[in-house]
């Protein structure tokens, strides 16, 4: 509803006036709503980490062995890429809030670029895995195909969780393109930037999930192995 909303006034018995909060243009409400949505993401990934930890407890040595086979270089590159994309996103929002719309758009494009780099690196990594016989649905990833239960579970969860994370990155790129469209049509502006704020929050959440996904899968089996 785009029409300008004039807040209502409620009058108490002493005649004092109180501004009524309407649902239109409710900045704090929009922020709260988006945070609540992000909490559902936290619970969703929380449940997946729980599944993962459950089997880490049951198949401890297998998990460490499987983890040491992942490509830490590519994973590390992606970590840094995502870190910088969080910076550009944050600076973009800052520029938007300080009135520099052009700078904000540049920063969003930069974030999209970094997100694409992340996906490219990820695709390369999965291709390498595929050639080593590690991918969902391959015969070598079935029970009795040469790998232990723990290794199959580790790699299965690895593809599930990094895949879901990658899916969030794709959604994020879509959201940022939509945001650019809204900025161009003037619906998001320095005075009315809740959408930009929430998409920046979303991007930070995607980063936040990676902060745990990365060490869990890549670093558990790094360095000196203690069974």
């Amino acid at each position: 509803m785009s029409h300008e909303y004039v807040p209502e006034i409620a009058v108490d018995r002493e005649g004092k006036e109180h501004v009524v909060q309407g649902w239109q243009g409710d900045y704090e409400g929009g922020k709260l709503g988006f945070w609540l949505f992000m909490l559902t993401e936290v619970l969703m990934f929380g449940a997946m980490f729980m599944t993962l930890t459950y089997y880490f407890t049951l198949h401890h040595a297998d998990f460490i062995k499987a983890s040491s086979e992942l490509d830490r270089t590519l994973g590390g590159v992606n970590t840094v890429v995502l870190l910088f994309s969080a910076l550009t996103m944050g600076l973009g929002l800052l520029k938007m809030r300080s009135g520099d719309v052009k700078g904000a758009k540049l920063m969003i494009w930069l974030t999209i670029l970094l997100a694409a780099v992340f996906l490219g690196v990820k695709a390369q990594e999965w291709t390498n895995d595929y050639h080593e016989g590690i991918f969902l649905g391959l015969d070598s990833m079935q029970a009795g195909g040469g790998k232990s239960f723990g290794e199959i579970l580790f790699f299965g969860m690895y593809f599930t969780m990094t895949g879901l994370h990658g899916f969030h990155i794709i959604i994020g790129i879509g959201l940022m393109l939509w945001l650019l469209k809204r900025i161009n049509s003037g619906k998001v502006s320095p005075d009315h930037h809740i959408l930009h704020f929430n998409i920046a929050l979303y991007w930070d959440l995607v980063h936040l999930i990676w902060v745990f996904v990365f060490p869990y899968f890549y670093m558990t089996g790094a360095g000196v192995i203690h069974g």
């Binding site: 590390g76 360095g223 000196v224």
Partner: peptide
């Protein structure tokens, strides 16, 4: 992030998993 990479090679290596989660 640098600490993440150094830790498994350098210190407290018997607690790698816990240390990584702590840094995270």
């Amino acid at each position: 992030t640098a600490l993440t990479f150094i830790q498994p090679e350098m210190f407290l290596t018997q607690y790698t998993f816990g240390m990584q989660m702590l840094i995270g």
